[in-house]
């Protein structure tokens, strides 16, 4: 895994340095007060005047000591602080949204499969695809305008109300929850389609297997056949997909975070790229790479645990 990780960092490093523009350009450019000499000084300050390989090895050396370096952004804060401060909210929203997706998509998938080509199946198919096709920013703005401004049911943006500090614990949880309703709903809505269709096709495949026929022949009720015998097998591949979504937990969506004014990872990374904040970009990429590798490993282990054939193949 370590060579793979180094490979990932090397490629990332090269790619971000291929993009034209440097962080110092953005801080001094079109500013009548800044001289060329100042720009040189800033480049030296950030170590950008050294040859690229040297910059890379310096960075790698610091990383080995778990030092992600200081951001090139004008706040000059340690990269790790900036990432850790934004990670919890991103993970919270992603976990809630995956939870919501599973909660809704699994029943829809099962029901669509068992009642194939029924009105319900067709209606949900249309519904989830509308959700898939609809631009999330547009849906978000509509919901904010209707539920937030007109009806006043939910807060529009942000995570906490003003005066959050003065609320009791219950009040704080309620406040946070009401702020999370719209963002979680909007981010889950787009993901429903994929999951429910996936669940539906898995289920369809499973209920045509011989062991389901056997279960029915034993005289089990349809409920037990579907929920105990079929569902378990149909869920296996879904668990694999969950393993693969581990790195996605820390990745946020720029559009979505921008609209809801949520300070998450997506916007942090996007702003970092726009400012050519190399240490920050590399920091986010390294953490993402580690999580991807861990996710893959978990998925492999999960497969082996769930399916004896894979264990025996070795």
């Amino acid at each position: 895994m370590v060579p793979l990780l180094i490979g990932i960092t090397l490629i990332s490093f090269i790619v971000i340095h291929l993009a034209p523009g440097e962080p110092t350009d953005l801080q001094t450019q079109l500013n009548p007060e800044a001289s060329a000499e100042l720009q040189q000084r800033l480049r030296a300050h950030y170590g950008l005047d050294k040859p690229l390989p040297e910059q890379y090895f310096n960075w790698l050396g610091r990383l080995a000591r778990l030092d992600f370096g200081q951001s090139f952004h004008q706040d000059h804060r340690p990269v790790l602080d900036k990432i850790l401060e934004r990670m919890p909210i991103t993970i919270l929203i992603n976990v809630l949204s995956i939870g919501l997706i599973l909660l809704v998509a699994i029943p829809i998938g099962i029901f669509s499969a068992t009642h194939r080509n029924s009105m319900f199946d067709r209606a949900t198919t249309v519904f989830v695809f509308v959700g898939f096709a609809m631009p999330s920013f547009w849906l978000a703005l509509l919901l904010m305008d209707y539920l937030g401004v007109r009806l006043g049911w939910f807060p529009i943006a942000g995570l906490k109300s003003l005066g959050f500090e003065y609320l009791g614990l219950g009040g704080q949880i309620l406040d946070l929850a009401s702020h999370l309703v719209l963002p979680v709903f909007v981010s889950a809505f787009g993901g429903l389609a994929g999951f429910s269709r996936y669940m539906r096709s898995n289920m369809l495949e499973v209920i045509h297997q011989d062991y389901i026929l056997t279960a029915r022949a034993k005289g089990l009720s349809e409920r037990v056949v579907i929920l105990r015998h079929a569902l378990r097998n149909a869920l296996l591949p879904v668990i694999t997909i969950l393993g693969l979504s581990v790195p996605g937990l820390i990745g946020g969506s720029v559009i979505f975070e921008t609209i809801f004014a949520i300070p998450g990872m997506g916007k942090l990374f996007y702003d970092g790229v726009m400012m050519r904040d190399y240490p920050l970009i590399m920091g986010v990429l390294v953490i993402g790479a580690i999580l991807t590798l861990v996710g893959n490993l978990l998925a492999d282990i999960g497969y082996a645990v769930a399916d004896p054939r894979i264990r025996k193949a070795d």
């Binding site: 703005l141 904010m144 305008d145 937030g148 401004v149 006043g152 807060p155 529009i156 943006a157 942000g158 975070e257 921008t258 609209i259 809801f260 004014a261 300070p263 916007k267």
Partner: peptide, 18 residues
């Protein structure tokens, strides 16, 4: 200072008193 990166959202916040 409330940081709201999207102009449309900010306008909705304005209307709702945020």
């Amino acid at each position: 200072y409330r940081i709201i990166p999207d102009q449309a959202t900010m306008f909705l916040e304005l209307q709702s008193g945020g």
